[in-house]
Design a protein around this nucleic acid. Sequence first.
DNA 1: GTTATAATTGCAACAGAGTTTCAACAAGGA
DNA 2: TCCTTGTTGAAACTCTGTTGCAATTATAAC
Lengths: 152, 152
Amino acid sequence: MPLPQTEVPGRLQAELMSRGLRMTRQRRTILSVVETAKQHLDASQLLRRAQRIDPKIDRVTVYRTLGLLKRHGLIDELDLMHMQGEKHFYERRPQRDHIHMACLRCGKITEFESDLFDRLKGQIQRDCQFHIVVTRLEVGGYCSTCRVAAPA
Amino acid sequence: MPLPQTEVPGRLQAELMSRGLRMTRQRRTILSVVETAKQHLDASQLLRRAQRIDPKIDRVTVYRTLGLLKRHGLIDELDLMHMQGEKHFYERRPQRDHIHMACLRCGKITEFESDLFDRLKGQIQRDCQFHIVVTRLEVGGYCSTCRVAAPA
DNA sequence: GTTATAATTGCAACAGAGTTTCAACAAGGA
DNA sequence: TCCTTGTTGAAACTCTGTTGCAATTATAAC
């Protein structure tokens, strides 16, 4: 086992265990990859990184673990405006929801928190009598760097 | 030709023609399906409806035409929280952006316009110096009907 | 520690959305 | 009407994600 993952369980692992779920070697590996990721990763990137730790991990296990984390609301699934095929990207669910902005030219993803967004969600719950479980606000356009250099 | 589509060109068709694009029989058919749709349709539903008018239309042409409409900003692509597989749904781009709420229980899609949403977009453009081309705000949760009958 | 059992894994095969290639075709202008 | 160039259809392909099932293993009970 290249990395001693039993030392620091990590929040995701602790969350799953507190929910009475079995903690397998494969899950620990995948959770650690998700937790230490510094960018949004898709399933195949996640698989590759997990396989660096445990080469025998299968794609299916990655998909199943991602499904588990999604169902438990511990990660969010992003489309990032489908700029690179139909991949889905994943990130740990943050305390406060944020907006993802995707630059259609350079591909950079920027995150943005906003009171207005929080208020908008409140309005939706009130005015539509809709109980919000998950939100996804994605914006495509041109970032400050790319908008100067003629976009289209 | 079951439907005389040359009579009322329709806004999408007029838009594409004004941009100097070739108007083929197939495109006219697909555009008419998109324009007359009363709900969000995915590519295969779109294909089926187009084939009712012109049985020889191919999937590939549907995908290519949707791509064309997307690139020209005439339709929006929705994920509707991926509740039914990985399909994408399409709708004519409206004057004013709206939010899509998807009930995780009954699957109903509700649309909602909001000043707060418009203001939020303004804030993003200003504070992030980001030139918005397209936005997608999707919300998953429980609609007023389903939230009474215990959700999870 | 050993055992029982129920969940999880890996593999293979599958399913579905969307893309590519290329020869045949047709829209729209001269 | 002809010509050019963009568009179409068909087949094969890619990629993401899923399913069925036998082998494995985490956990709890002993």
